[in-house]
Amino acid sequence: MAAIFSKRNVVIGLIVLAALFPYVARNDYYLHVLTLAFIWMIAVYGLNLLAGFTGYLSLAHAGFFAIGAYALGLLTVKAEMGFWPAFLLAPVITTGIGFLVGIIALRTKEHFFAIYTLCVGYIIYLVIDKWEGLTGGVRGLIGIPAPADIGPISLSTPIAQYYFVLTILLLVILVIYRIIHSLTGKTFIAIRNSEDLALSLGISTIKNKLLSFVLSTFFAGVAGALYASFIRFIGPDIGNLNITFDLLVYMIVGGIGTLSGPIVGTLLIVWLSQNLQFLQDYRMLIFGPLLTLIVIFSPRGIVGFIAGWFTNWKLRRKVNINQAQEQAEEV
């Protein structure tokens, strides 16, 4: 039984399920919602790398998401660049700005870091909102092109876009997996554990924190660029703090500092939001208590809770087997 649910099989099963979804659901609306959820997941993975694995809670994440989206929008609409060069350049621009912000932000720690990045996020939002000459202000940017065809492969249908975003998401997860299991990832975790301890082992915490910050903005930029090309209209609202808090909720509900948390949290909350549409803004009456309960009873979210339960179950089973063996020997 346990062999069927090995990590590898579960991962393969989920990928197959995601690949088959368009043929099972046969509903453009569901496809749209799920594609959007995948885009959020990419952003949440970025946030999770910094907040979950390195221990630095950035509240500027939606700002970097918006920078990625606007970079793609401006490059394609105003500079009339081709889609693919713009799509590659947008995360690079986001990362560049992330680097500059990171150099200053990482001189602060803990709640000061959160407050500082909160301000940065708001400033990014204000710049987008007020700089009408460049960004179009509240009117936003329209006419952003969908992903251009790759040779014979057309990316303009909803199904094609679904697969395109899914592919990028899988790539992102693979990259994050490799980072977390590398020495660099271990270094991030060491910094989260104790910065003094990391320092006394000879780890340059400044360099590594900056690396984590820059990587997290890179993923935000990728997600933003995808969002812009998928929705094809962007306004300053995507840089709003509400988006940061949405991303935070996805991360915390799923499991901060876990590899699968962003998927679980985003899917669950997006699904709940869809089903609770009739409640309108009163939905928050459900999300608020849910979030509070999770933070109190399972700080590592749903994934952390299940992982803990599974570890206990394995331990209990081991103890039971040992006891049974001892009894058998006694008999």
Partner: peptide, 22 residues
């Protein structure tokens, strides 16, 4: 490290490898 601070969720070997970071 003071108070024998370790990385509790890493394995013994992973902790040792962190020591060889430089």
């Amino acid at each position: 490290a003071e108070d024998r601070k370790l990385f509790p969720e890493m394995s013994v070997q992973e902790n040792l490898m962190m020591g060889a970071y430089v």
